[in-house]
Every structure is written in structure tokens, then in C-alpha cells.
Amino acid sequence: MKFKKHVFICTNDKEAPKKSCGSVHGMELVEAFKASLKEKGLQLDIRAQKSGCLDACAFGPSMVVYPEGVWYGNVQLSDVEEIVESHLVNNQPVERLALKFPARA
């Protein structure tokens, strides 16, 4: 496996009444995650990148961390360092931002 963790941050922009992650600051989040990972020398082990719609518009800006499959919602620029340190470095998801989706039958 090339990366230990992979972070996908929604940057989708759409013409719709629903909230759009890209217009809320999705791209700024991508840049903030990349800068933090680079500053800590983690960019070879952890990849942060933009993604298209993650289908969690109501919770945007949204993102997901793999391989764990932990989803985050309403992520703000001020949350980036906490997610990097707690989850990406120390494997402790940030519960206050984690999205809980109902189980599918």
C-alpha cells in the first residue's frame, strides 16, 4: 500500500439549493491539510486530496479518512490541526466531528 491513510475532502460545487462543500471552503481545507502534512513530513505516508461529491451535502464541508472509513462533517479550517494530530497521527478519530450514518438493512 502506497499510503497509510488517504483523506478525501469534498470540493464539489453545484447549482442547487442544498449546501455545497466547494463553495463553503472545500478547496481551502484541501490546501490546509496538504500544508499541515508537508510541515510534519507526513506527505509520503498520508495523502490529502480533493474529491467530487461524497453525498453528505447536508453535513458539509465533508470528508472521509481511509482505510478506517471515518467520515467528518462541518469541518472548519480551525479543525484541520486537530484532525491531523488526533486522527491521522495518533489514530484517534475526532468524535465531535465524526458523522454517524444509520445502518443499512
Rank of each mutant, 00 (worst) to 15 (best):
L77V: 12
I83W: 12
S62Y: 00
L54V: 10
S62R: 06
H87W: 10
I83P: 14
V65G: 03
M63P: 01
F59W: 15
N74M: 06
I46Y: 03
P67M: 05
E82I: 06
L44Y: 13
S86D: 02
Y66N: 12
L42I: 08
A48M: 04
F59E: 14
E85S: 13
E82R: 10
Y72I: 13
D79N: 12
W71M: 01
S51F: 03
C57K: 02
P61E: 08
P67C: 03
D45Y: 01
E85R: 14
I83L: 13
S62F: 08
Y66H: 14
D55H: 04
L77T: 06
Q76R: 15
H87V: 03
P61Q: 12
P67S: 07
E68W: 07
G52I: 04
G69I: 07
S78F: 10
A56Q: 14
S86W: 01
G41M: 00
I46D: 02
H87Q: 05
I46M: 01
I46E: 02
V84K: 00
V70H: 08
R47C: 11
A56E: 10
G69Y: 10
L54M: 11
A58V: 09
E68T: 10
A48I: 08
G69M: 08
G60C: 07
S62N: 14
G69H: 04
A48L: 03
L42F: 13
L54F: 05
W71I: 06
G60E: 01
E81A: 10
D55R: 09
A56W: 05
S62G: 15
Q49H: 14
W71L: 00
G41A: 01
V75T: 08
V64S: 05
S51V: 00
G41R: 00
V75W: 08
D55N: 06
A56M: 15
C53A: 00
V64Y: 04
F59R: 08
Y72W: 08
P67Q: 05
Y72V: 08
Q76E: 15
S86P: 00
G73L: 12
E85V: 13
Y66V: 09
N74P: 00
Q76L: 15
L44E: 15
E85H: 15
E81R: 08
L77H: 06
S78L: 12
G60A: 14
G73A: 11
C57Q: 02
F59N: 14
G60I: 09
I46L: 00
G41E: 03
C57I: 02
C53M: 05
S62A: 15
Q76N: 14
Y72R: 10
I83G: 12
G69N: 06
Q49L: 07
L44A: 15
G73M: 12
P61F: 04
M63L: 15
A58Q: 12
G60R: 04
E85F: 09
I83T: 08
H87N: 03
S86I: 01
A48C: 05
K50G: 14
E82S: 05
E82C: 02
F59V: 09
G73C: 10
V65K: 11
M63Y: 04
L77Q: 06
V70S: 01
L54W: 03
A48P: 09
V84L: 03
L44G: 14
L77A: 13
I46R: 04
G73H: 10
N74F: 02
